[in-house]
Design a protein around this nucleic acid. Structure first.
Lengths: 184, 184
DNA sequence: TACGGGCGTTCGTCAAATCGAACGAGCAGA
DNA sequence: TCTGCTCGTTCGATTTGACGAACGCCCGTA
């Protein structure tokens, strides 16, 4: 898998953008980050290849997570696979998954409503790396989680776990849940 | 705001982990990334402070997004039981809002659990422009929506509407709902 | 007009990251 | 055993990123 963009220009743009958002001068940011003005000046000019520690301290000073500075601004077009919601629906008879709101290009979350009938445990494949699942049980009883770390949920319970490892769903009663899939 | 972890050791661990996942040798990875073996060896040992380009090429060679290498292993399994969790400051007595998952600065969605007692209608100010609210009712009956376009919801119902206009919440019974706030 | 202060850039120096080569270890096969 | 290969580490040489100082610039103000 190829990464989309060379980060040099991206970082320069991100620094200018985030610094403008905070509303401080280049010199002020350099002070807060503990860097030399010259270093920051070159970074914002697109010249130079900062070390991790340098960029990290800038992230801290700007109050933004690290990835904000290296990844292209609008969460690069990680296409939400059109069939992803329906595929789950198709291959298991006693699970119904409804896509409530698809994250448009550039957003990072899909919202599903999942209805499950009691039956044997269902295994789910690992999703794309970096995805996270958030789940709130609406009704019923549900045993779910990453393989080996399953948890039993009651209505109103909230569970989050990485979606990029194999995990299980097992409805102990007829259940439904809200599932928020968070992509990277 | 402070970032959680010093990235030096995190990177070393991430490199070993991801390389093991791909199943290639240190020398092979160095070859694919176009780096000297010695450089990679020191990085995996925790010594050194790689430049962005160096770490980027490793990300490409490993086929993982960049942030995978610098941020601590993001998600673990976490459960918030129906009664647990820290409640947010409620501006009205008969509403409880619980933040289940905050979008770490820069992400675009927060997940809330909202509990409402029946009472008079509650008006919400308009949020920041571009925000969208998604709501799935878990139990009870809730009448909500933008002013003038309120809809009555039953358990399992899903409603979405712009959050940047004034809107109302009115619980007809004791209710709870999952609220996903989508920003920007 | 001259002054002080902050701004962002440029230049020379130094420390450090990267490189290339050599090393010992492990392993397969003749 | 000996050969040939790959692995991962260590050690000088060199490129290069980070620093500090100086520069020109723009504003308020005396």
């Amino acid at each position: 898998m190829h990464q989309p963009a060379p980060p040099l220009a991206t970082i320069a743009a991100a620094l200018r953008r985030e610094r403008g958002r905070v509303g401080i001068s280049l010199a002020e940011l350099a002070r807060r980050a503990g860097l030399a003005k010259s270093t920051l000046s070159q970074l914002e000019a697109g010249t130079g290849n900062p070390s991790i520690e340098t960029l990290w301290s800038l992230g801290v000073a700007l109050g933004v997570p690290f990835s904000r500075l290296v990844e292209p601004p609008t969460a690069q077009v990680r296409v939400i696979r059109a069939g992803e919601g329906q595929r789950l629906e198709a291959d298991q008879a006693d699970v119904l998954v409804k896509l409530l709101a698809a994250g448009a290009q550039g957003t990072r979350r899909d919202i599903y409503l999942m209805e499950l009938e009691p039956g044997q445990a269902r295994a789910a494949e690992a999703h794309i790396p970096g995805s996270i699942e958030h789940l709130v049980l609406g009704a019923g009883r549900l045993r779910t989680g990453p393989a080996g770390e399953e948890v039993e949920l009651a209505p109103g319970d909230y569970l989050t776990f990485p979606g990029d490892v194999p995990h299980h769903y097992e409805a102990l009663e007829t259940s439904w849940a809200v599932l928020v899939m968070e992509h990277r």
